[in-house]
Amino acid sequence: MKVEIWSDVMCPWCYIGKRKFEKALEQFSQKDRIEVEWKSFQLNPDMKTDPSRSIVEYLADAKGFTIDHATQMLDNVTNVAAEVGLEYHMDKTVLANSFDSHRFIQFAKKNKLGDAAEEQLFHAYFTEGKNTADHATLIDLGTKIGLGASAIKDVLESNQFAEDVRKDIYEAQQVGVRGVPFFVLDRKYAVSGAQQPETFLGALQQSFQEWEKENPAPLVSLAEGDSCDIDGNC
């Protein structure tokens, strides 16, 4: 059964939601029959990459917050991240447009490394304070998960996978995504936000039960002996 997850690299709740969903999946008895697909979404497609500005300044300007209020918000999300084992350093976060990051993820998905790419990007952005719009950074992250440096360079220096990103964003509009993370299970059930593992587990169980009725597991042969086949051969 497929679980699609719309997310953006710059969304702190998406990394937290990833960890909570992973915890639920570990507890799910049929986890080997779950396919996870990461989908592209941009919270601010017009954002300009600007390493000179802090995330606090950006939030204050974009939302009309005071610096103190913006700092308090970031401290809160940092504490929540710590509860699921993530180490956020929001003071080091680099403001970066995420479009090329999403093209990088789409390339990784083609090579069955979508989840690994998401993990590398989240960690680079929130923990290491790296510029995830920088091509050299993306090449370095890609080689860590087994992608070829020259292949990543070719993708980033072209327009490859741009249409895949736009398609995901269009799909998000069609299924009603208004914020991320957004989890869609078997295109029937949706879970919005970084919910608790128990919520994810319940959604997995309910959606899988319905999916399994239409997709029964194949029988596994435990032993074979002498027999006759349908053509009369014995």
Results as ranks from 00 to 15, higher is better:
residue 97 N to V: 10
residue 98 S to A: 10
residue 98 S to I: 01
residue 98 S to Q: 05
residue 100 D to A: 03
residue 100 D to Q: 06
residue 102 H to T: 04
residue 104 F to N: 02
residue 104 F to C: 05
residue 104 F to H: 00
residue 105 I to G: 00
residue 105 I to F: 03
residue 112 K to A: 15
residue 113 L to Q: 11
residue 114 G to W: 10
residue 115 D to G: 14
residue 116 A to C: 12
residue 117 A to E: 04
residue 117 A to W: 00
residue 119 E to F: 08
residue 119 E to S: 12
residue 120 Q to D: 13
residue 120 Q to S: 14
residue 120 Q to N: 13
residue 121 L to K: 00
residue 122 F to R: 04
residue 122 F to D: 04
residue 122 F to C: 06
residue 124 A to I: 01
residue 126 F to E: 03
residue 126 F to K: 01
residue 127 T to D: 12
residue 127 T to I: 12
residue 127 T to K: 09
residue 127 T to H: 11
residue 128 E to H: 09
residue 130 K to V: 09
residue 130 K to E: 15
residue 131 N to C: 10
residue 131 N to R: 06
residue 132 T to P: 00
residue 133 A to M: 03
residue 134 D to S: 11
residue 134 D to W: 06
residue 135 H to S: 04
residue 135 H to T: 02
residue 135 H to N: 09
residue 136 A to I: 12
residue 137 T to G: 07
residue 139 I to W: 00
residue 139 I to K: 05
residue 139 I to C: 11
residue 140 D to W: 00
residue 140 D to M: 05
residue 141 L to F: 01
residue 141 L to W: 00
residue 141 L to G: 00
residue 142 G to M: 09
residue 144 K to D: 11
residue 144 K to M: 08
residue 145 I to W: 05
residue 146 G to K: 07
residue 146 G to F: 09
residue 146 G to L: 03
residue 146 G to C: 06
residue 146 G to E: 09
residue 147 L to G: 01
residue 148 G to R: 06
residue 149 A to I: 07
residue 149 A to G: 04
residue 149 A to D: 04
residue 150 S to L: 13
residue 151 A to V: 07
residue 152 I to D: 00
residue 152 I to L: 10
residue 153 K to M: 11
residue 153 K to W: 05
residue 153 K to G: 08
residue 153 K to E: 15
